[in-house]
Write a protein that binds this DNA or RNA. Sequence first.
DNA 1: CATCTTGTTGAAAATGAAAATCATTTTTGT
DNA 2: ACAAAAATGATTTTCATTTTCAACAAGATG
Lengths: 149, 149
Amino acid sequence: MTYKNSFREYLGKHGLKATRQREVILDAFLSAGSHLSTEELYRTIREKNPGIGYATVHRTLKLLAESGLAAQRHFGDGHTRYECSSEEQHHDHLICTVCGTIIEFENPGIERLQEQVAARHGFVIEQHRLEIYGRCAGCLVKKEKKQAI
Amino acid sequence: MTYKNSFREYLGKHGLKATRQREVILDAFLSAGSHLSTEELYRTIREKNPGIGYATVHRTLKLLAESGLAAQRHFGDGHTRYECSSEEQHHDHLICTVCGTIIEFENPGIERLQEQVAARHGFVIEQHRLEIYGRCAGCLVKKEKKQAI
DNA sequence: CATCTTGTTGAAAATGAAAATCATTTTTGT
DNA sequence: ACAAAAATGATTTTCATTTTCAACAAGATG
């Protein structure tokens, strides 16, 4: 319930209104898996709420991102994706190029080295993005089996 | 001249033809600064070659990427960018969110830690992308001046 | 060199995701 | 409940990218 309340709080502070649609979209966003696109969430919501329009899903996801509840991610497929970002700290992604699985990870060592690199160039970091693309354990096994045949 | 030849070689091997336009576009790509978008390269080329169309620039850049001479990059601005990738090894980017300056860097330490992270999750890395966004030295100075006034 | 085949070109149209528009509806404070 | 302000959802617009297609050029062949 904390999520709903913090969204309501954000809405209130910004003179925005708590509507049924926003609640439905927030619920769907929270219960669906992470890293989903507007299109995917829209389709999920449509199943139970045929009245909610694409534009509203799009706007609400942007709102969630602005409020800090969601984080936008851009992977390579041309779709903006959103993940729950609430209290968690920054994390990066391992992405399987075969099955599309996305794994989150954190690595303070990498972050520290990034700071060093930035400092060396006189940069002050605002944010960063690290994506590692490769084959996940499962897909590596499948590949071996395929070759064995 | 090596670049031109290796592009010609690629074209030949794939049953494609070496045309005047492709030569012009390759030349422009090589002599222009790195990290340019199709639009930017198109405009540069137009100055001396008004006859070359946007679609041709776009197709040729894709060809260059396929041939390995260019590498596609996606930063946050919604434009696909291309950089010369020839013999250089992998590198990452520092991007100034104020002036748009892009600085390349390499950091073996970060790469090593990435390998560790991947191994921990059973991944085999194919490629990765690290972008650090922040304010460059120049823009930090400007900001200070602004505040001083 | 002429001819033929095949790939290429450039203008224009199509595509697709994201964002904007606008008449109507809903929420909220009084 | 009422008025003011914001939200909704269907549709349109935007913008980068990609495709289409008729005319053209490159390279092979006779």
